[in-house]
Design a protein around this nucleic acid. Structure first.
Length: 278
DNA sequence: TCGAATGTTGCGAA
DNA sequence: TTTCGCAACATTCG
């Protein structure tokens, strides 16, 4: 579920709450949600640590701890991270809870995950974290990420545009929703080969990606079945979507009918008139 | 009952 | 070497 705007929404929702809280206890209900670490080992490493800061990189929620270590949480398809009080904790579906953090001030943080694909990573210091993060491509919203960077990178490959934009090592943070949205806005076909994209088309794709992501973040992301933040709030971008899940609807630009096809093994939405294959 | 669902990884085949 | 397709992970929903 969560792509860059949804993860950013979660981070922003927790930013005013978590820093300063000290981990007093930990319940790991789904041990496999810990990457390469046993619950006992994690507990030993984080007990008594205070959360210093919270940020996002790619689709990861990064949590800085007081001893210089970091936690990184990937929500994958159905993960949610939200604070609960005792009342709320009783109401959540215990079957779907992967991890609960208990803080010394009595507050709690739940990592809930229906499909249990989400993963928590532990890094003992900044260097280890950065080493892990080096697998990711540039942040599309970074002010230093220029359209010439995208153009040059596109030229390095001969892959289908959609496959490349979904590749987190090429560009970080896009998923199925925002790739479809950005390609529609840039009038590019998802199957077009990356090296055939002209410089001016790359510039348009670059600005389209950034525009879409900015707007979605402003609206707190997109909610279909799963995405929620702060335990219950839905994203507002769902009704601003241009093509994604708009099959059969009129294209908002030319009026032709939006089609659903399969590209890169993912459902893909295009306007057959605006987005011509090359 | 089957297929698809907002994600990622690893493998084998072109 | 690069790219692509598929299975796996696990669960819910139509």
């Amino acid at each position: 579920m969560p792509e860059l705007p949804e993860v950013e929404t979660v981070v922003r929702s927790l930013q005013p709450l978590l820093p300063g809280r000290t981990i007093q206890n930990l319940e790991v209900h789904w041990p496999r949600s810990l990457h390469d670490l046993s619950p006992a080992k994690l507990w030993q490493k984080v007990r008594g640590r205070t959360i210093k800061d919270l940020k996002r990189r790619a689709k990861l929620i990064l949590i800085a701890l007081s001893d210089g270590a970091w936690l990184a949480l990937h929500l994958r398809m159905t993960g949610r991270l939200y604070p609960v009080d005792d009342e709320k904790l009783k109401k959540v579906n215990a079957f779907h809870i992967s991890i609960i953090f208990f803080f010394s001030d009595g507050s709690k943080l739940v990592f809930e995950d229906q499909r249990r694909f989400g993963r928590l990573y532990y890094f003992k210091n900044q260097l280890d974290l950065e080493n892990y993060l080096s697998r990711y491509g540039p942040e599309p919203l970074d002010k230093n990420y220029k359209s010439s960077d995208l153009f040059n990178a596109l030229q390095q490959h001969k892959r289908q545009l959609k496959a490349l934009l979904l590749d987190q090592s090429f560009l970080a943070g896009l998923g199925n929703i925002y790739v479809d949205e950005a390609l529609w806005l840039a009038k590019l076909h998802p199957c077009s080969r990356s090296h055939t994209v002209h410089r001016n088309q790359a510039a348009l794709l670059h600005s389209s990606i950034r525009k879409i992501l900015h707007r979605s973040i402003e609206s707190n992301g997109t909610t279909f079945m799963n995405f929620k933040f702060l335990g219950g709030q839905a994203g507002g971008y769902t009704n601003e979507l241009l093509v994604f899940r708009q099959t059969g609807q009129a294209c908002k630009r030319c009026g032709d009918t939006i089609q659903k096809i399969v590209v890169s093994q993912r459902s893909t939405h295009i306007c057959p008139t605006c987005q011509r294959p090359t």
